[in-house]
Design a protein around this nucleic acid. Structure first.
Lengths: 198, 198
DNA sequence: GTCTATAGCAAGATAGAC
DNA sequence: GTCTATCTTGCTATAGAC
């Protein structure tokens, strides 16, 4: 397998488009290869199966999610406001789901098509994302900035709200990814009892 | 077609299970018929195609959603608190998505598999749901109970939050549908600037 | 209204030339 | 590394007996 090569990347891009439009099972290897300007057989030089192509896409996307959350919630210095860390996290996470809504749709909604082993590896990346976000909520509660009764439940609700952007976002809609990020950051700060002014 | 008959309903139930587990395209008519205790051919006595079976499920589910929202937001009498209407709506809507998460998953996440005409009919039902919820938010802002900058955007966020419950809910999880309904009602009241005490 | 049998087709994946 | 050609499988939907 030559996952980093030009052809492999073109196949990945074609697969993302096709999976996002029709879903994994309704997408044919002929369609993917066609979008990459290749014959159906060429796909199997770079990926063992169609499922492995999905796994690559899913893995890269999930790793990107984790990195976005890590970087946006970094606690730099001692006088950090956790409301700001949360604001930045939601903004960045939502923005990614809107801007890359095709990729995000595949990443978030085609998990069921993964093989057992691949699925397990993805689930552990998802858990990591959740832990990062929960950490921020815990920090904010500890510092008195947030007022939350059920931290775990609220974490899941916030994740869910952000993730679902990938389902409904359209570039033809009335909001840019940035605007949705702003709105959602506000809404989430309200959800955690911050109100935007700690 | 005999959509209301016993056999037709057994097929619908089988199809809901199968579609929820594997998705529309990965589900075979043999699987559906098998779950209903019938031969593959029997399906075509009751439904013209597999897609029509999906449409029936989707239509019933969407009509149920609209009814739940209508009933829970009914403005009975003059001294109605809109916070309570919203609380009831979110509770009921979330509860349905959790309790009937298999149906809801099909209803919410298999729309792309519908034919063009069927899709259009479903979209108009979805618009109706959104309008009901937006109406409550508008009423609450007008009465001074809610403080919302972007009513349309907030409506979509609330809908999205509720709908996505169908994606992640599991009966093995740590919360009952009722508990999730309570938590979400609280979160949504915070999102609209009510805070639970107007 | 349900069955068995099957037509007709398209999918995923491979073989072997270049 | 890519192609054309094709194998094998399994699908949706129909035909015709009961």
């Amino acid at each position: 397998m030559t996952v980093g090569s030009d052809a492999a990347l073109r196949l990945q891009a074609g697969a993302v488009e096709a999976f996002a439009e029709r879903g994994f099972h309704a997408t044919t290897t002929r369609d993917i290869a066609g979008r990459a300007g290749m014959s159906p057989a060429a796909l199997y030089i770079h990926y063992k199966t169609k499922e492995e192509l999905l796994f690559q896409i899913s893995q890269v996307g999930h790793e990107r999610s984790v990195r976005i959350l890590e970087e946006s919630t970094e606690a730099t210095g001692s006088g950090v406001r956790h409301a700001e860390r949360l604001d930045r996290a939601v903004r960045a996470f939502v923005r990614w789901h809107a801007e890359h809504h095709t990729t995000a749709r595949v990443v978030q909604y085609e998990l069921a098509a993964l093989g057992e082993e691949h699925y397990a590896r993805i689930v552990s990346l998802r858990r990591r994302s959740e832990e990062i976000l929960r950490g921020v909520l815990e920090d904010g509660v500890a510092s008195g900035e947030f007022h939350i009764e059920d931290i775990r439940g609220t974490t899941l609700a916030v994740m869910s709200l952000c993730i679902d952007v990938a389902r409904w976002f359209s570039p033809e809609g009335r909001k840019t990814p940035d605007e949705i990020g702003s709105l959602y950051a506000d809404l989430v700060l309200r959800m955690v009892g911050n109100g935007g002014h700690p």
